[in-house]
Write a protein that binds this DNA or RNA. Structure first.
Lengths: 245, 245
DNA sequence: AGAGCTAAGTAACAACCTGTAACGCGACGC
DNA sequence: GCGTCGCGTTACAGGTTGTTACTTAGCTCT
């Protein structure tokens, strides 16, 4: 993870300002937000490594937002609140928060906790977020992660090989985010001895992308979903919705 | 994860007693320990899902222990301490703790934090622990996870296929713990369309085990490391040491 | 706008991996 | 001791995957 991108969610403009400024001074990219809609826009629009979420957000409820986000994505969330009673903290953990900090807080402590959560997240899943939900919809297609099935818009079942499945998963987990060939290869975490590396790695991924395109693109010559980012890698350039079970 | 196994590390017998009792009443397996040596014995001897680690342990230092453990394994650790000042808490996060709780603490809060940490751990790596370190030694053999190489005791290099590598990783991560065929298959997380299931799954793993045995057992007919647990699955019946880089 | 260069698409090929089935052996229970 | 069930082993075939070579497309510089 290069520079952590942190979403600061608070309805109080002063507090937002203070926190974003502090985080930026400490080498993070801080993205301010005040509503759930804004949060979702950031999540769709690009990588987010950590969310600092205030509990009381005007007419919205931070706990409920946390609960909803947790069901959809695996982004680390730290709850921030003026409510420091034990049962309040427990409510935070209950909805799946990774940590809970009481206001007013020591900025250094916030930084330490954020680092702890970030390093834990990195430990588990490299730098790409893995959606934990099971069914993905994109452009009329359906990918059922549990049954490892892809259904075309017309309902035809398409079989994918292991490698193709891994590639599709990496892409679905990071829509609209260009991934380098190295990043894609890093998600193929069950590697074997005959693993390509260096120059050969790129070519093998190129071929893999081509094969996947022939299977899930209507017109492989003019790919709509699996777009190539020249000099960078590949992007999944389509919105993806994910559902449970 | 069926029932969480929690290691309670405190040099004060009363405190240990209280915590283990409380955890057991709440459906955990609580394992008491007072020294680093005892902790390591538990870690070698079986699965441990969470460590509650006191900061002041007589003549040992909980922070240093945490720091050392972190470099070797990926077990979640919650620091427990009477020192609640901010800089003390930060020291806890600094050494890689997942959370920090000040004594005296509300038992319910402890439970809530433990659950949070446990669920996060489960999210990332199913039910088997993945060592994050890179070189494994067992019975004279060496497995270099980074280079995906196995070296025999006599220094001969053995090539493993993807599937064999995945199997070996699952086994190395859980020495002395019998794994069912389903558990082993669950670690093969990059699956494809032609994935075996049900009856066929078992047979394919049997064959895989056999193949791995011919590669890393001196006498495949009388396996010393990759033992079969009749009616259950397979065990890696040899001590494994893991080192960084 | 065109030439040149670099990056990516495509097709073919061969090696390898991997699941399946069949058969035989050994362990456990009665 | 015998039957049965689980496991070991082998062989085989199909699929997958990396590699190479060649072609096509995109960017840059003049």
């Amino acid at each position: 993870m290069a520079i952590p991108r942190i979403l600061v969610v608070d309805d109080d403009a002063d507090m937002r300002q203070m926190m974003t400024q502090f985080l930026r001074q400490n080498g993070s990219i801080a993205l301010p937000a005040a509503t759930e809609a804004e949060v979702r826009r950031h999540l769709e629009g690009g990588r987010v490594d950590l969310i600092l979420l205030d509990v009381m957000l005007g007419d919205e409820n931070g706990l409920e937002i946390c609960n909803r986000l947790r069901k959809e994505q695996d982004v680390p969330i730290i709850m921030v609140s003026a409510l420091s009673a034990d049962h309040q903290r427990m409510a935070g953990y209950e909805v799946g928060a990774d940590d809970y900090i009481a206001k007013p807080f020591n900025p250094e402590l916030l930084l330490a906790r954020a680092k702890a959560v970030l390093s834990r997240a990195r430990r588990s899943s490299s730098l790409v977020h893995r959606r934990k939900t099971m069914v993905f919809q994109f452009n009329g297609w359906t990918y059922d992660a549990k049954r490892n099935e892809v259904l075309s818009p017309s309902g035809i079942q398409v079989a994918l090989s292991r490698r193709e499945t891994a590639l599709l998963q990496a892409l679905l987990a990071n829509p609209h985010i260009p991934l380098t060939r190295e990043e894609i290869a890093a998600t193929f975490d069950v590697t074997g001895s005959g693993e390509p590396s260096g120059e050969a790695l790129g070519r093998s991924i190129d071929v893999l992308v081509g094969r996947l395109r022939t299977k899930i693109e209507r017109n492989p010559k003019d790919p709509r979903m699996l777009r190539t980012e020249r000099g960078v890698g590949y992007v999944f350039a389509v919105d993806v919705t994910a559902q449970d079970s």
